[in-house]
Write a protein that binds this DNA or RNA. Sequence first.
RNA 1: GGAGAGAUGGCCGAGUCGGCUGAAGGCGCUCGCCUGCUAAGCGAGUGUGGGGUGAAAGCUCCACCGAGGGUUCGAAUCCCUCUCUCUCCGCCA
Length: 426
Amino acid sequence: MLDLKYVRDHMDQVQQMLRNRKLDMDLTRLVRLDANRRRILVEVEELKRQRNVASEEISLAKREKRDASRLIEDMKDVAQRIKAMDQELAVIEERMNDELLLIPNMPHESVVVGGDEKDNPVIKTWGSPPAFDFAPRNHWDIGESLGILDFERAAKMTGARFALYWGQGAALERALINFMLDVHVRQHGYTEVLPPFMVNSSSLVGTGQLPKFKEDLFKLEGRDYYLIPTAEVPVTNIHMNEVLEEEDLPKYYTAYTPCFRSEAGSYGKDTRGLIRQHQFNKVELVKIVSPDTSYQELENLLLNAETILQKLNIHYRVVSLCTGDLGFSSAKTYDIEVWLPGQNTYREISSCSNFEDFQARRANIRLRRKGKSKTELAHTINGSGLAVGRTLVAVLENFQQQDGSVLIPPVLQPYLGNVERIETIH
RNA sequence: GGAGAGAUGGCCGAGUCGGCUGAAGGCGCUCGCCUGCUAAGCGAGUGUGGGGUGAAAGCUCCACCGAGGGUUCGAAUCCCUCUCUCUCCGCCA
């Protein structure tokens, strides 16, 4: 969330930001509430001051065995007024908070103003699409004919947008998870964590999924527990309500988790295959850093994510999301888009964002600089490193062979018992 | 699921019958002094959030002792609800 004082003092910029994000929000209500709140606050605080003074007098009188009943009578009235005003304030503050929680983050100055994904500038490309002397197939054809992906049975036991992996398909998914974690831990200096796969609502408010995007989440019935839509939520909230010493920063965390998304509002999209599932695996990268270094840390995190595709030798490009495509909480986001020859297109496989202090303010993650008593908000950054299911898709489609088999990238072979190729077992 | 104990500042830890307790004491941290260096020692300072005022430094006020509510002129202290932690029993991967 944005700082209320910032909103108050930079109304024009905030309004412009909303236009750039193609959002229509009325901030006048918030401004009115804010003015109202301060007016009442001044009044009630004066009453409280009077009460404090009187309390001291009463206390003194009692100790000196003097009568204080007159003063006590007077204070009864003051106490009532304070109570009424406090209640009024509580209502106003709740409404203000509701409004503030719905205002998205300010994009970084480097973010291009644009309407949708078509306006996202391509920042870089790596490698080139593989050449096929046959028509490359999409991954669900490859997976089903190899007998490693089974969507029909998954639909039977659960429903649409779930997948059952068999044999070497299941092993390949697991290999990718282990490979990604190993690279990030051993080569990039991240600490591996294995968080809960359910979180409470305050964690989701902390990272920005709530209150605005409730319909995207799976919630457990009768409890304040939600299935995580990304490891970002539990991992960023590790340091919720904490003050971190600057010298202990930056924090680098990586986590494998399944992710659960309701995919409300995407009914027609990507109905076939692994691309858009209600449950998918992801290895996530999360950084908690000083405001001084967050943009450099974002660049490095992006490189860490790219490294996975480079080691797998799969072509991709990186785009920078424009204002119209930028996520609610993000100040700047790079998407890594992997090449999928079976679909002749690039698909998002990682999204790397700097949230600046937007999540930190919500989750109350602060830092204290050496020698300073004043705390300030940390910056949070995260990115997929990578979406595992989509990486498996990329492996299947990019390394498919004319005979229907799929070559395993050399870096993954040690994770698969040195198997070099997945082929149909007869 | 049953029974009990607890939650206080960055950390540890006091808080009597509700009233100079924003909170003793210690640790840590910051600055200064002292010692040839280090350690020790001495002195001062050191929470967060919000408001008013001010160009600013500052001054000043209010709130906060797990969370929320209640009693009261007044609550860290009393009452209720919830959350979490710990112990014992039951169940269980």
